[in-house]
């Protein structure tokens, strides 16, 4: 058992009646790592997060959390906290009262003393004495994160924490998660926002119909991935299009795309072929003003890795 692992799961299977929610899932999350869980709806993300929180027990497999083997429901060790299916808040209580009630429930007087600091960290100081009833989804998410911070987590499990966050809220949440990871807390979060995951996570696990289809660093995912679509904005679209058509491994998908008031085009290629195209454009004196994937690499990978399974499942 590796004590540096916040989560070590081997062969986890969980069924609800005839439905197999998780099928032989392996997962490693190191302490201090922010690990993303990605997958289409019904892939088993929430079930897996629920297991990590101790809400239920796996039907089979081994699950070690913070160095402790978990065999039964509600048997997760101290230091595991978070939320699934949205933060559990009581709308008739203010933000501060929600946190104070939770701190009192857990018998943590020191946490109660830190409520103001925690509220400031998630950017809710101004609404600390407002009832949660009137909070937006993003504010509720931040208050849910604040509630999780009360107990000084060593493993933080969050289900869709980025839902409804505005840019300021996103900055607060990212700041908190980054700080926690830097202090050694393992963070496991699910999200449908690939930009957030790419920004935060050092590793991701992609689930499809209860099975792991990829788990590892984002860089490895890009290397393993198929061709991506890239939008190319240059100083001379006509010349650039010609160069792209003449470069091995490059396929022009859309020859003309209006992009920010200029003319761009879209090519499909692997990274090495793209490198070759950029070098050729430079040699030809064509300036590359923007080169970006049409969809993020993670999203593209998700679609590529999960769609076939969806289709297979549909058949």
């Amino acid at each position: 058992m590796d004590a540096r692992l916040a989560v070590r799961a081997r062969g986890i299977t969980k069924c609800f009646g005839d439905i197999v929610a998780l099928d032989n899932v392996d997962l490693d999350v190191a302490q201090g790592q922010i690990h993303g869980l990605v997958g289409p709806n019904g892939a088993g993300k929430t079930t897996l997060l629920g297991l990590l929180l101790g809400l239920s027990a796996a039907d089979s497999g081994e699950l070690d959390i913070l160095g402790t083997t978990v065999r039964r429901a509600l048997d997760a060790p101290d230091g595991v906290t978070g939320f699934v299916d949205g933060p559990g808040l009581y709308p008739s209580l203010t933000a501060r009262q929600n946190l104070a009630a939770l701190a009192a429930l857990r018998g943590r007087g020191s946490a109660a003393a830190r409520i103001d600091d925690i509220l400031a960290e998630v950017g809710l100081t101004d609404v600390a004495d407002d009832r949660a009833r009137g909070f937006s989804l993003g504010m509720r998410q931040r208050l849910g994160l604040a509630a999780a911070l009360l107990s000084g987590p060593r493993l933080l499990v969050l289900d869709e924490p980025a839902n409804g966050l505005d840019p300021a809220g996103k900055r607060h949440v990212h700041g908190v998660l980054t700080r926690l990871a830097a202090e050694g807390t393992g963070v496991v979060l699910s999200s449908h926002r690939m930009d957030d995951l790419e920004e935060l996570c050092s590793e991701v696990t992609i689930l499809a119909t209860g099975r792991v289809v990829f788990s590892g660093p984002l860089g490895k995912l890009a290397a393993e991935n198929r061709e991506l679509d890239y939008r190319l904005l240059t100083s001379d679209p006509r010349a650039a299009l010609g160069a792209a058509a003449g470069t091995a491994g490059i396929r022009v998908v859309e020859s003309t795309v209006a992009w920010r008031g200029a003319e761009a085009f879209v090519v499909r290629a692997l990274v090495p072929a793209l490198d070759e195209l950029v070098a050729r454009l430079a040699r030809d004196g064509v300036a590359v003003r923007e080169l970006a994937p049409v969809v993020s690499p993670l999203e593209a990978a998700l679609l590529a890795l999960t769609e076939p399974q969806d289709q297979e499942a549909a058949r």
């Binding site: 490693d28 201090g32 050694g184």
Partner: peptide
């Protein structure tokens, strides 16, 4: 398929966590 990244910071503890006890009835 599994993967483990080396953490970028030193973990604060390497010891196994203690099992969490239910909240006392009075608190609930």
């Amino acid at each position: 398929m599994t993967a483990t990244a080396t953490p970028t910071t030193t973990p604060r503890e390497d010891t196994a966590a203690t099992r969490a006890h239910p909240v006392p009835l009075a608190g609930g």
